[in-house]
Each structure stands twice: as structure tokens, then as C-alpha cells.
Computed example of a mutant assay.
Amino acid sequence: MASQPLAPPGPRLTVADAMEPYEHQIADDTTIDQANDLFDDNPGIPYLLVRDAAGRCEGLVTRSALLVFLARSWYTQHTFIRDVTHQRGPFARPAMKLEFAAEAMRLKRLRAWPVVDYDGLLLGVLTTRRVNALSPVLQPS
């Protein structure tokens, strides 16, 4: 018995086929000091996903976005992540064609793009690593 392919071929791939869960999330009222501690405790993470009080995705923040605040230590305890420049929407949707999402990521120079449902709740993240892994499937035969 032949095994079934994991995803349909070509342009029928969607963001839902490629998105991955991402566990490193913070609330938008997290201080820069607390976010920096998370980066210190998890040295391999490139970014933190930011969500609001209702759980809706607000974007993602990198350590480099925090550097200007970290230069002045008193800022870190009094400034919230929501006040820091970070990647914000629009975000990817699960039903979006993967080739469209890949092109949007390329044009916007995004390495990671949050995926949200129609209520704005975070479902996962689409990464260039995952898109590149599926790129042979995206290329027309």
C-alpha cells in the first residue's frame, strides 16, 4: 500500500500546511526587562510573539528591537513591549496560499510571520526555514 503525501502538491499548499507552533509568547504589558530576561534564559530564540490582554496577536519583537532601551537601564523596568517598535500585522491566515505567503515574506524581508485566525488569535508561525523546506513542492513541475 502506497503512503499518502503529507500535503497536496503545488499551489494548493496553504499556510496551514507549513505553519509551526511557537511557545515563546509574551503579553504586550511585559516590560523590556522581563522580555530581555526571556531572551537570556532561552539564548536560541530569535524573537518573542506579542499578544494583547485578549490573547490576540500583536506581532513579534526581536532582541535587537530592545537594544536602544537596554542601553539605559531605568527604561527597561518602566517601558512595555507595546511601546517598542516591533513587527505588527497584517498577519498570515491559515487558508492563504503558501506561495502567496512566501512572496509576501520575501518582499517584506520577514524571517517569521505570525499566523492568526479570523479573531486575531495566534495559531502558529510561518518561517522562511519551513517555506524553503517546502520550496521544491511550490515550484511548478
Rank of each mutant, 00 (worst) to 15 (best):
Asp33Tyr: 06
Asp33Ala: 15
Asp33Lys: 13
Asp33His: 13
Gln34Ala: 15
Gln34Cys: 07
Ala35Glu: 05
Asn36Met: 07
Asn36Lys: 07
Asn36Ile: 01
Asn36Leu: 09
Asp37Arg: 12
Asp37Gln: 13
Asp37Leu: 12
Asp37Met: 09
Leu38Cys: 05
Leu38Phe: 04
Leu38Ser: 03
Leu38Arg: 10
Leu38Thr: 03
Asp40Pro: 00
Asp40Ser: 13
Asp40Lys: 13
Asp40His: 11
Asp41Ile: 04
Asp41Gly: 10
Asp41Phe: 09
Asn42Val: 07
Asn42Arg: 04
Pro43Arg: 04
Pro43Asn: 06
Gly44Leu: 12
Ile45Pro: 03
Ile45Asp: 05
Ile45Ser: 10
Ile45Met: 04
Pro46Ser: 12
Tyr47Pro: 00
Tyr47Gly: 01
Tyr47Asp: 02
Tyr47Ser: 08
Leu48Asn: 02
Leu48Gly: 03
Leu49His: 00
Leu49Lys: 00
Leu49Pro: 00
Val50Asn: 03
Val50Gly: 02
Arg51Glu: 13
Arg51Met: 09
Asp52Cys: 01
Ala53Ser: 14
Ala53Tyr: 06
Ala53Gln: 12
Ala53Pro: 03
Ala53Trp: 04
Ala54Asn: 09
Ala54Met: 08
Ala54Gly: 09
Gly55Gln: 04
Cys57Thr: 06
Cys57Glu: 05
Glu58Ala: 05
Glu58Asn: 08
Glu58Lys: 10
Glu58Ser: 13
Glu58Val: 08
Glu58Trp: 01
Gly59Glu: 03
Gly59Ile: 02
Gly59Val: 01
Gly59Met: 05
Gly59His: 03
Leu60Asn: 03
Leu60Cys: 11
Leu60Ala: 11
Val61Thr: 12
Val61Glu: 07
Arg63Glu: 14
Ala65Trp: 02
Ala65Gly: 04
Leu66Ser: 02
Leu66Glu: 04
Leu66Lys: 01
Leu67Met: 11
Leu67Gly: 06
Val68Lys: 15
Val68Ile: 14
Val68Thr: 15
Val68Asp: 14
Phe69Glu: 05
Phe69Ser: 09
Leu70Asp: 07
Ala71Pro: 02
Ala71His: 13
Ala71Asn: 12
Arg72Cys: 06
Ser73Cys: 06
Ser73Asn: 11
Trp74Asn: 07
Trp74Met: 03
Trp74Asp: 11
Trp74Leu: 04
Tyr75Leu: 11
Tyr75Trp: 10
Tyr75Asp: 05
Tyr75Lys: 08
Tyr75Thr: 08
Thr76Ser: 15
Thr76His: 04
Thr76Asp: 10
Gln77Gly: 11
Gln77Lys: 11
His78Val: 09
His78Ala: 14
Thr79Asn: 00
Thr79Pro: 00
Thr79Gly: 00
Phe80Lys: 00
Ile81His: 00
Ile81Thr: 01
Ile81Ser: 00
Ile81Pro: 01
Arg82Met: 01
Arg82Asn: 01
Asp83Ala: 15
Asp83Lys: 08
Asp83Val: 02
Asp83Glu: 15
Val84Phe: 05
Val84Glu: 04
Val84Leu: 09
Thr85Lys: 14
Thr85Pro: 13
Thr85Gln: 15
